[in-house]
């Protein structure tokens, strides 16, 4: 760096580390009942942590990052998601 340039910026690079795995914050875990699921994928859209993704046409929850907020269960139009107490 020369004298003439900006040296410091308020930026950081996101990394996946143990502290980033926010699934450990969870008290209730969402569970999808695939017999009821109609594959509308509303849960995928509404998940505030983007922890629900689509795999083989079906919604799937990434428990590494799901904080257990319950938005998916609340929004599921066919009540296919149940919140189970983990601890």
């Amino acid at each position: 760096m020369t004298e003439d340039t900006v040296k410091y910026l308020p930026l950081s690079k996101p990394k996946i580390g143990i502290s980033g795995k926010t699934g450990s914050w969870r008290i209730f875990a969402p569970e999808i009942n695939y017999d009821k699921c109609v594959k509308c994928y509303i849960c995928v859209v509404v998940c505030p942590e983007a922890s629900i993704f689509i795999e083989n046409d079906r919604p799937k929850i990434d428990y590494n990052y799901c904080k257990g907020c319950g938005v998916c269960a609340r929004e599921c139009p066919v009540n296919a998601i149940n919140m189970r107490r983990e601890r």
């Binding site: 900006v6 040296k7 410091y8 910026l9 308020p10 930026l11 950081s12 690079k13 996101p14």
Partner: peptide
């Protein structure tokens, strides 16, 4: 000098220590 780019993600405005913040102000 920087921008938000999904292909090269950065966090802007993350928590910084007092010492690092002082460097930002000096800059």
């Amino acid at each position: 000098i920087w921008k938000l780019d999904p292909d090269d993600p950065v966090i802007m405005g993350n928590i910084f220590s007092p010492a690092d913040t002082m460097k930002l102000r000096w800059d």
